[in-house]
Design a protein around this nucleic acid. Sequence first.
DNA 1: AACGACTCCGCAAACGTTTGCGTTAAAAAG
DNA 2: CTTTTTAACGCAAACGTTTGCGGAGTCGTT
Lengths: 341, 341
Amino acid sequence: MASHQVTIKDIAKILGISASTVSRALKDHPDISPKTKKMVQAFAAKVHYRPNALALNLRRSKTNTIGIIIPEIVHHFFSSVLAGIDKVAYAAGYNVMICQSNEDYDREVSDAQALLDNRVDGILMSLSKTTTNFDHINGLIDNGVPVVFFDRAPEGISADRVVIDDYVGAKIATHHLISIGCKKILHLAGPQHLAIGKRRKEGYESALNEIGIDFNPDYLIKCDTRDEVFANAGKILTMANEIDGIFAVNDSTAIAAMQVLMKNGIKIPDHIAVIGFGDGPNATIAYPPLSTVEQKGIEMGKEAIQLLINQIENEEETYTPQTKVLTPVLRIRESTAKFKD
Amino acid sequence: MASHQVTIKDIAKILGISASTVSRALKDHPDISPKTKKMVQAFAAKVHYRPNALALNLRRSKTNTIGIIIPEIVHHFFSSVLAGIDKVAYAAGYNVMICQSNEDYDREVSDAQALLDNRVDGILMSLSKTTTNFDHINGLIDNGVPVVFFDRAPEGISADRVVIDDYVGAKIATHHLISIGCKKILHLAGPQHLAIGKRRKEGYESALNEIGIDFNPDYLIKCDTRDEVFANAGKILTMANEIDGIFAVNDSTAIAAMQVLMKNGIKIPDHIAVIGFGDGPNATIAYPPLSTVEQKGIEMGKEAIQLLINQIENEEETYTPQTKVLTPVLRIRESTAKFKD
DNA sequence: AACGACTCCGCAAACGTTTGCGTTAAAAAG
DNA sequence: CTTTTTAACGCAAACGTTTGCGGAGTCGTT
């Protein structure tokens, strides 16, 4: 029944004055007499008047809302990015509208359209794995919507982006294995047509080269999910006697690998040291606790939204896009505890 | 620079007809002649006309947006609820606006206010741990905003809610321990002033009673985080010889407990069987893989949004609030593999 | 020839604000 | 006692839509 939020017009009618006077009184405009102000403000407070954001937004073509397109929410890395975004967005007075593409291209473009339709002030996005066409984001940019990418950014599009340095991260991880004595390191790799898989593999290769070891194609297995690890268990186990270290493209596959190795009596890290990439909560939960490089989701979120807000609020001059790259930091745990002389 | 999304008025001006005609032509109104329709529709398509959602929302006081207030996003359970919500919301044509309270009461009320200001069509929420005053949600309800609670719902407020049956879940878990031979079961409990902690403890107690065992206060330790487990490690270890099972109020504490036990040479499940509550991804990652009861986040999200949509779309008559309770299901893994005769 | 019935379209109000400008009355200046 | 200033307020347009109503013009019926 209430069903009717009180409006400025209502107040005006009841108080017998005009809507413009009410509006000005509420914002302390000098043209309004002190008594009128007091009266209006007191009454507004009494009836819990709140401005209608829809009307405001329409009037000033500004929604104070930023849109987010994220591949999937149920993923520790992405949800921690969200947490980082949310924190500074809230502090700066912005609301967030979150869309999840579910790694689906069509959904991604429809999300972009929806955010555009709702006139968000800016968009933060991370590409879906299936996105190869960028018309929708060019559409956003053509419409003057500020966009910044995080983690997964398109090639060849001029926009702000914040990413982590996969190449360096992989290098750090591999060097760590080397530093504890590993010489024959297996790499469980992601798909090489994706930047992330490719760069991590390159970092691994480069670290090996730096100490004079040539990349051995036998020491690379394409598998980047738990299921794939189990599917490749046989292959991994036959190599187990030969290798002394594993660098996995992400934590889940590192952990799965540890699970198959241990189930077959191979000791970690005594026999084989293992390191992952990502540092979700899984790493500390695993047995043995997994060494890894931390991906800094929260920080990434904060940087991204900060870039976006800057872009929104200084939209006067022409903006030259920036790229922030975060370097992952090594987290040493028991899966690579020093085990050789 | 584009900076100006094309509007109905623009189209009208260019085509030399009125805005109302354009509007009607776009929605195939019978009053418009076929040629005019074709002309308008063709032109609108050419310039990529898209209706301004702000204006639409204002006009029909309907935003097609539902608001969500969630304690924290970086939490597997909550993010899977979000995933469930998102899935059916998207299918039904709604956008979602997500606010995270960070378990903070003040933030929760400010979030509620923001959603109200933005005239969301309905609100889905899960209470922050620090919320004891419910004025803000009564405010929402008084304003006629449909609200449904999930997981953490307020007592004494008449509203839809979907929760899981903590009591039964705890009972199932405890009975499972009993079924494999455990007689002396330690309970790592949550705070008893919170419903969740209390009901899980009661379920545990009831299961024991059903097989004629009295609740032994010595077998209850208040600790529900990893850190608390480590802080109570001494206490737990001194009991380790005496007990044969542990039921923990959630998976993280169950896993932490396994970690301290194993580090001290106690075998799981041979010596002590362990079961948790929640079934996040941690459970399968743990060593040994953790038995637990599954909390069904996705399903909870789907049910909740469905309830909300029903409420939004049949808002004619007076609505009598429902409560859906989901019963958790047992997931047996190695941490409770049968170990006694 | 006149009248009704259609067809097709435009006017204007409305949603809730904000704001430039004009208006009124009282106060200050001459 | 005029005239100008100033204080305090209201009108109306605007943001982009939708929609009830009315108005032209056309056609068909008597």
